[in-house]
Every structure is written in C-alpha cells, then in structure tokens.
Design a protein around this nucleic acid. Structure first.
Length: 811
DNA sequence: CTTGCATTTTTTTTT
DNA sequence: AAAATGCAAG
C-alpha cells in the first residue's frame, strides 16, 4: 500500500508557509506582466471560491497558469496540493509546460493537471480494490459499450419492445451522469410500464457485465469515483487533505457527476477523521481550522456559459450559472477584453449570441481594430464549397499564412468527405482531427483486443473478439459452448479456454483453443503488475503477433487491402514502441488507458505544417489565424436533430458562436445550395444564424442570391465576385426548387479518385481539366507520385493540382 | 464454419 | 455512399 501514500504527504516538514501569515504573500511582479487589471485580480485573489467568467479569447489560460504559478512561487501550496482539470490532455500538457516555464520545471513537478477522466482513472487505479474491482481494470469505449448492450438486447429479445442500442446507451449514460445506478434508478422506476421494466433489466445486466469484466465505461470513471468517495469516507479524506487548490477549466461543460466530484473533493475533513488519517499514515499535521478541521480546498472555476456546447452528454449550464449560490461567498471576475480576434469578427459573434435570450449580457471587445470583412461564399454543391475553401487556402498560403494556422470547421463528421477529396486533388496538406479512424479499424481493434485480454483476463468482450482472429475455426457454436461451460462452472471465459479438453469438441478446435490459452496466459504473466519489471505494450504486442501469426494471416487473405492493413498493424507497433520510449516505466495498462482517453484535440501537432479539419465541438478552446466555417445551412447548423430538443437551437447557436470566435484575423463562412446526405442529394437553405450577422460585416464572394440566379449550369461561377449591395434577407425566401437533374449538380469532381499513372507535365504544356477547362502549366514541383502542377486556366484562374490524380489530360 | 452477395440502416456533436 | 446485417451456398 505504500504507493497509495506516494505524494500524499508532500511537505517534508509542515505546511508550505508554516502558519499564521495574515496576508497572503505576493508573487513576483513578473508573473503579472502584461495582464489587465481584471486578469491581475483573477491571478491574485485568495479566497475559498472564485468564478472567472472568461469570454472567448480573453486570456483565461494565461490567468490560470499564472494563478497556479503564483501559488507555487509564494509557497502557498506544494505542487502535489494542486489539482487542475482541463478539457483535453493536450491542454493539460500545455498548462504544465507553461507553469514550468514560469517558475521552473522542477518546481512544477507533482501537480495533477489532467482531464476529469484521467484524474478519475488515476484515483480508481489506486482505490479499485476497495469495491470489487482490481487495479488492472480496463475501460470500455463507446464501441465496447455498444457491443455489450447489443448483446444484452439480443439475449432478452428486447428489440421487439422497441429498444435500440442507441436509445439504451443514451439512457444509461444519462442515468450515470445523474449519479443514478441501477438500484436507485429501479427504486423510482414505474415497473407497470413494460418499457421501463425492460430498460431496468438491460441496465442491470449491463452493470453486472461491466463489474464482472472488471471494466468501467466512460461515465463510470466519474460516477464511480464519486461513489467511492461517498462510500469510503477515509478514502475521500485522503484526497480532500491532499488537494488544497482545485482549478477547473471549461466549467460550463461539466455535468452533474463532475460537479459532484468537485463538491466531494472540496469538502472539509473533520478533526477526528483528520487525526485518524494522519496518525495511521504517519502524515505530518495539516494546517487546521478553528474546530481542528482541515478546511475545504480552495476552488477556482473558469467558464463561459455562451460556450456551453455539451448538453447532449449531460453538461448542465446551471453548474456555472448557480456557482455563486452553490459556493457561498465566492468572488466573480469577468474577463471581456478579447486578445484574439479583430473587431469585425467579435461584432459578428456578439451579434449572433445576443439572440440567445436567457443569458447575462456580455460583449467582447478588442483594441486590435476592425480587420478584414468576413468572407461569405455559397457553392452549388458540397464539392463546390470545398473547392472554394481549397482555393482560398491556397491564396492564404501564397500570402504567407502557414497551413498550420488555418482550420476548417464543420458540424458533422460526414462533411469531411467532400473536403478531403478536393484537398487531396489540390495537393493541400491537411489533417482530420478526431476522425482518427485508426483505432476504429478492424485490424487495429483486433490487435488492441489482444492487449486488453492480456491486461484484463476477466473481460470476455475483448477475448471474444480475438478468439477467432486469425481464423482458428472457433465459430459461434464453439464460442457458445465455451461460454456455457464457463457459466455452469463459475469460470471466466478466459479460464474456460484452458479446460477446452473437457468439452468434447473436435481435436482440431480443441488444440487451437488450448494453444491460444497458452499464448494469452504467458503474455498475461509477463505483463502482470506483480512482476518486478512488467513487460511493456510493445514487448507484449510483438510477442502476441508473432506467436499468433497475426500479420501473416492478414497478408494472405488475397484482399487487395491486405497490405494496407498489415501496414496499419506495423503502425500500431510503432505507437507502442514510442510509448515505451517516452514512458520507460509505463505498463500495458497505462498504454491502454492513454489510448482510451485521447481526445480529438489531443491529436493536434503544432509542428505538422498541415491545415486542420475538425468538428465545431473539437474546435472549442483552439484558435487559428484563419478559420473556415463550412456548411452554414439549415438542417446542418442548426442540425436537424436539435430542432426537437429543448434548448437545442440555442445550443447550436452557441456552437456557431464558438466557431466564429476561434478566428484571429480571417473568417470565412460558407454553405452549399445542395448537399448529399445518405447518398441522396437535397436542397439546402442558408442557416438562420447568417441573418443574425450584420450584413455589412460580410463580403459575399458568391451570395445565396448569386448562386440562385445562376441556376447551377456550367460554366460555374468560380471566380464570381460581386461587390456589396446584396440583400441576403430578401433572397432567403426565393431559393430555387430542387435541381431537375442530379447530373447537372454533381460534376466530375464527385467521381472516384482516378489515377493518371505516370503522366508527367512540363511547364508550358496545355492540359484540359474536367471542371476548370483548358489551361497552361506554369510550374511543376515535387516528385512523382506527389508532383504538383500549377496551372493557369483560361477561365478558372490559377490552381495547384496533384498530377497523379487530378481529372486532367494533356492536350 | 466460412464466404459472398443482397438488404438494410445510418449521420449530430464526444470522453 | 459506406457500413452493418442477414441469408444462402459451399
């Protein structure tokens, strides 16, 4: 149990500043450098609870880091007494770096700076044994939860009652975020309603399955930590005593469970409990209050209710609205000065958000100046819109803006398809965030499932996934036999494998099962935390793949995609090696945890030199020199599905607001007249939110009205430029009926990626492009297959094309 | 048990 | 348009 104590008794002597200093010491003036009076106050305020209402771009990260640095520098706190919660792991790493840069890396070591989920995993790993889990628990991601629920619904034939995986998962998640477990849910459930009774049964089986699998789902990580603190006061006291300063970023997006967690952590420890705790563990005596209690930790939260965009996963805007009520005597500081965007961008943002009625009025302002107008564009199709985005990015890049300072936002992930197609053809380097389908690929999931089975033998889900991969002749029937053997002998599925000989199966299958059991058991032994030096993820993975002939089997299916799959597995090996290099003492479990908890924004790489594509949700907290906000259409933004939800359209507006306020200098708003959905092409209408931006702030390169009047026939108005004078409001009601023929709208751009093979072009060559017509090559850069031609088209302007795949022919 | 083909469903956003 | 599912043949 010694490692539980690790870091819990930070002071080799006593409290950081002894006791009895009446006025708090003041940090170095250098820490306050360049801060405005409000920010300065937020850094210096010392009191039990502080709410910083920080508008977009108001320098809140700066304030938070300096506040932490100040606490450390003045010795008001030891690093280990600080718990800072950020929204992404990347933000956490950045904050740690910045604090380190301010007061020295060593002085900043030992702080807990992480996301809610990471912090909870850390606590749960230490304490899991208290309530029926082991410290080798694994985390079920959404796909795992989905698979489990699907299985349960099938078992119960509950789909006949109208239960779908999606609705059940939603209800379970909602319950957990409200800290309601099966029992408490059942207590208030109406069992006369067959639907309700059915759900309770599913919920019960789901919870039991997770517990049996020694696994937590995402929501459990928070909810079970709260449960832990409430059920085991001594454990709670340990953490309450330890964390003296708690800071939470993006507080507007906390849900009830997260709020409760913060509440639990900031409670005081009464004198008796504190005495017991310190005596038992040999801790030095903490600074006490008048009743001998350890006072509750100080709490700083930062947030902006206008940027609350996660209601769908239980975020409760009331947490921030009612903060002053929840934490009496709290101080509130408003940061309204924006250091990020031009006034035009802020005016647009202010104007849009002012349409949400139940909000405290707040107006962002800047001293940067008006800046450029917002650029608007209406394409005929999603591809046309994408082409505009690509062209403008090329122009920006020519004008000296680095690719990494440009981002493209969209409401739904499906919108990436058109953008990617055009970007590839235009030879624009880009990166899709959160679309990391890498860990969703079948071969990667299979390989990961091997690692999970090894780390957590109790989990049947992962085992089932790998049982017949590579193919060993273990089909559904054999699996069922193993499962029922396990059930009737109270064994785990994994243990049942070793007893395969007793099942009377064919000799071939039995042999295969026993071989698998052997491979897994050996790997589990080498990776066990009880080992002096547990094998790391790369060691385990490489051994497993070799012994199961995983890659060979992958290469021999005759599928043309085999090679790509094998390469993906190689890539996974590199990832594990990289992890081992960066974390010499990192265990297999550490690796699995890290992979489970990566957020979309964590994939950002500042040195990448690529344009970033992401959803509006992922964009929260980020900023870019130039921002393209695409698909600003009814049905997409606001999204169709939000229409029926209470507060739906208002939240969509906040999402739009978040998108706008990410831009520093250049903001582009684009939409399309028609958009493909489910493979069907439909007419799109401009978003209502566009009308909420004062018309004079937008310079429409091609307004909805222009696009209407063209009727969509060739040649398309790629260079259309209309100066001022357009009245958007009038045009909205006059959109054309659906295009008569689909062909007319889809253009050759939508066709499959083609391959021009060895086609080589030289400066001066005449070419013909499927969309842009004829043109002359003015430059060729790069080498095959990534050679890029710059072409001056006769009617479509100058473009950069990836020679290998552009729809072109040499004349 | 596996494979291939026909059918159906899916897209809101995420840790 | 792509992915997931279901079903029949080998």
């Amino acid at each position: 149990m010694t490692q539980v104590l690790d870091g819990f008794d930070p002071a080799a002597g006593s409290n950081p500043r002894g006791s009895g200093s009446a006025t708090p010491p003041v940090p170095d003036e250098a820490l306050l450098d360049g801060l405005n009076p409000r920010q300065r106050e937020a850094v210096l305020y010392r009191g039990q609870s502080l709410l910083i209402v920080a508008g977009a771009g108001s320098g809140k990260t700066s304030v938070l880091t300096r506040r932490i640095a100040g606490l450390l520098q003045t010795r008001e706190a030891w690093p280990s007494q600080i718990l800072a919660i950020t929204f992404t792991n990347k933000a956490a790493a950045e904050m740690r770096d910045r604090v380190g840069a301010l007061i020295g890396r060593e002085a900043a070591e030992g702080m807990w700076i992480s996301t809610f989920h990471s912090a909870c995993v850390r606590i749960l790993r230490r304490e899991a044994e208290n309530f029926g889990f082991t410290r080798s628990f694994t985390i079920y991601d959404s796909a795992d939860s989905r698979a489990l629920v699907k299985r349960i619904i099938k078992e119960l034939d509950a789909d006949t009652l109208g239960f779908t995986v999606g609705t059940v998962l939603g209800k379970i998640s909602k319950a957990k975020n409200e800290l309601s477990d099966v029992e408490s849910y059942a207590r208030s459930a109406n069992f006369n309603d067959p639907n309700e009774a059915g759900f309770v049964e599913i919920f019960r089986r789901y919870s039991q399955a997770l517990a049996k699998a020694n696994a937590f789902d995402f929501d459990d990580l928070i909810a079970q930590t709260v449960y832990l603190f409430r059920a085991f006061p001594a454990v709670a006291a340990l953490y309450r005593r330890r964390f003296r300063h708690i800071l939470v970023d993006e507080y507007q997006d906390t849900n009830h469970a997260q709020y409760s967690l913060i509440r639990e952590l900031t409670r005081e420890v009464d004198a008796a409990t504190a005495n017991d705790l310190e005596a038992e563990n040999g801790f030095t005596k903490s600074r006490r209050g008048p009743r001998g209690e350890i006072p509750g930790a100080s709490l700083t939260v930062v947030g902006d209710s206008d940027q609350s965009i996660y209601a769908f996963r239980g975020a409760d805007i009331r947490n921030i609205v009612e903060f002053e009520h929840d934490f009496p005597h709290s101080k509130v500081i408003l940061l309204e000065q924006n250091y990020r965007s031009t006034q035009n961008i802020l005016d647009a943002a202010n104007s849009v958000i002012s349409n949400n009625f139940d909000r405290k009025d707040k107006k962002l302002f800047t001293t940067i100046g008006a800046g450029d107008k917002i650029v608007g564009f209406t394409g005929y199709s999603g591809h046309d819109e994408a082409q505009f985005v690509a062209d403008e990015i090329a122009k920006l890049h020519d004008g000296g803006v680095a690719y990494k300072d440009i981002a493209v936002f969209y409401r739904t992930n499906a919108q990436t398809r058109a953008l990617e197609e055009i970007f590839i053809r235009s030879a624009l380097p880009y990166r899709v965030l959160g679309g990391t389908k890498f860990y969703e690929r079948a071969e990667i999931k299979d390989a990961m499932a091997y690692l999970i089975t090894v780390a957590n033998p109790a989990d049947p889900l992962a085992l089932r996934r790998v049982m017949n991969v590579p193919k060993r002749g273990i089909g559904p029937a054999t699996e069922a036999a193993l499962q029922s053997f396990a059930d009737s002998n109270a064994l785990t599925l994994r243990d049942a494998l070793s007893s395969a000989g007793e099942l009377g199966l064919g000799p071939k299958v039995t042999g295969a099962i026993l071989e698998l059991a052997g491979i897994l058991d050996e790997a589990t032994a080498t990776a066990s935390l009880d080992q002096v030096r547990p094998a790391g993820p790369a060691d385990v993975l490489i051994t497993l793949l070799q012994r199961t002939h995983f890659v060979e089997a992958l290469r021999n299916t005759g599928d043309p995609q085999d090679e790509a799959r094998a390469e993906n597995v190689e890539e996974l090996i590199s990832v594990t090696k990289e992890f081992q290099k960066n974390n010499p003492n990192g265990t297999l479990l550490d690796f699995l945890t890290e992979v489970s908890l990566v957020a979309a924004a964590d994939e950002l790489d500042d040195s990448s030199g690529t344009v970033s594509l992401m959803t509006l949700h992922t964009a929260k907290g980020l900023e870019y020199e130039a921002v393209f906000l695409t698909g600003v259409e009814e049905g997409l933004l606001p999204h169709q599905m939000s229409a029926g939800e209470i507060g739906g359209p208002a939240e969509e507006r906040r999402l739009f607001y978040v998108g706008i306020t990410r831009a520093r200098r250049k903001l582009y708003l684009s939409l399309a007249m028609t958009r493909a959905q489910f493979g069907e092409i439909g007419v799109a209408m401009p978003s209502r939110y566009l009308q909420e931006i004062p018309a004079e702030l937008i310079d429409w390169k091609q307004s909805p009205g222009d696009a209407t009047s063209r009727g969509g026939t060739q040649p398309r108005a790629l260079n259309a430029r209309r100066e001022g004078g357009f009245n958007f409001r009038d045009s909205v009601g006059q959109l054309p009926p659906a295009p008569r023929e689909k062909r007319e709208w889809t253009s050759a751009v939508t066709n499959r990626v083609r391959d021009n093979g060895e086609l080589t072009l030289a400066v001066g060559d005449r070419i013909r492009h499927a969309d842009f017509g004829d043109g002359r090559v003015t430059a060729v850069t790069g080498v095959v297959p990534k050679a890029v031609a710059e072409v001056q088209f006769d009617n479509a302007g100058r473009k950069r094309l990836l020679i290998k795949i552009a729809p072109i022919e040499k004349l």
